[in-house]
């Protein structure tokens, strides 16, 4: 199979390793880069090098951080007795966009997946238990995804944490704001009914 000159082919191969990028897309991105001004290409290369050099996991909550602690753990104004458990760092950004939560976070870095054989020991569960005993946490909000893996994780954590006398809550499930009731599926609508609140 015909290929390009040395470094161009290497660049295409590297892009081809990225998730969701096939050989054709890799080729298109590589040629786009070749057409860019030198300073633009250098800026991209520099930021990749910088992010790999600087970004680490927060030692406390396992969010992405540029020092030992992430900005949420380092923020003294946040409520330290309240912790929200999420699957991935990007879930923190989604919750922060709501501006409704002022507590701390804990990133599990995944979810229990029985079908993939991923159990609690492959997640940051042990670290969560250590935090709870050491940081005076009294309430845990479980904000894992509302799918089968997220629910399994939530149930496992609830079984683990409730006997310790903590307040353990799960984010509510229900109808999306702006949607029509008739299009709601039975599981979501059923949960919305059972989790209804008094007006």
């Amino acid at each position: 199979m015909a290929s390009y000159e040395g470094s161009v082919q290497r660049l295409i191969d590297e892009f081809g390793r990225l998730p969701g990028i096939g050989p054709k897309s890799a080729q298109r991105i590589a040629f786009h880069l070749l057409k860019l001004p030198k300073e633009d290409a250098h800026r991209l290369a520099d930021v990749i090098v910088e992010v790999k050099a600087k970004v680490v996991w927060c030692k406390r909550c396992f969010n992405i951080a540029e020092s030992d602690l992430c900005s949420y753990c380092a923020d003294e104004r946040r409520e330290a007795h309240l912790v929200c458990v999420v699957e991935e760092p990007k879930d923190i950004v989604a919750i922060e966009r709501t501006a409704e939560y002022r507590g701390k976070y804990h990133v599990l870095q995944g979810a229990i997946s029985p079908i993939e054989g991923i159990g609690p020991e492959q997640l940051r569960v042990r670290e969560l238990i250590t935090r709870i005993s050491g940081e005076g946490i009294t309430e845990v909000i479980i904000a894992t995804n509302p799918n089968i893996e997220g629910e399994a994780t939530a149930m496992y954590l609830a079984n683990l944490l409730k006997p310790a006398g903590l307040v353990v809550s799960r984010i509510a499930s229900g109808l999306p704001v702006g949607g029509d009731l008739e299009y709601a599926d039975e599981v979501t609508l059923g949960r919305a009914m059972s989790g209804r609140r008094e007006l």
């Binding site: 029985p114 629910e151 399994a152 496992y156 079984n159 039975e186």
Partner: peptide, 24 residues
Amino acid sequence: ETIESNRALREGYGLLTHAIPMLE
């Protein structure tokens, strides 16, 4: 459309861990 959601299986960790091996 849902015929049986088997919701109870998803809401009990012990039930779910017994159901998934059947599917696998």
